[in-house]
Amino acid sequence: MTITQADIQKLASLSRMKLTEEEQTQFAVEIDSILGYVEQIKEVSSGAQGNASHADKKPADIAHRNALREDVADTDLNPDASILIDAAPAEEQGFVKVKKILG
């Protein structure tokens, strides 16, 4: 597997990040070398899945249980809305301001 400059451009676009040309070259080399390293998990047989049955593994059980609380408004849970709005880079009349979304 070789990561090309075009792959990098596609990934950058999917992740909504601008890259300089120099960064594109550098990231292509580095991501290629990391993928080269992680390749080794291909040795793990997919059939191995059966070995790690559900009953066997605690962390997965934790990941798969629901944790729900009563659906009631709890003002303690949230700081004052204005504090959150103030954290936004741009605001107007108590709203977070963004550029036009629909053309």
Binding site: V38, V44, N51, K58, A60
Partner: peptide, 16 residues
């Protein structure tokens, strides 16, 4: 499948 799912399978093996 090749990366993410495989990694999860391997993670379960390590846990066992």
């Amino acid at each position: 499948d090749a990366y993410y799912n495989k990694a999860n399978i391997a993670k379960d093996l390590i846990a066992s």
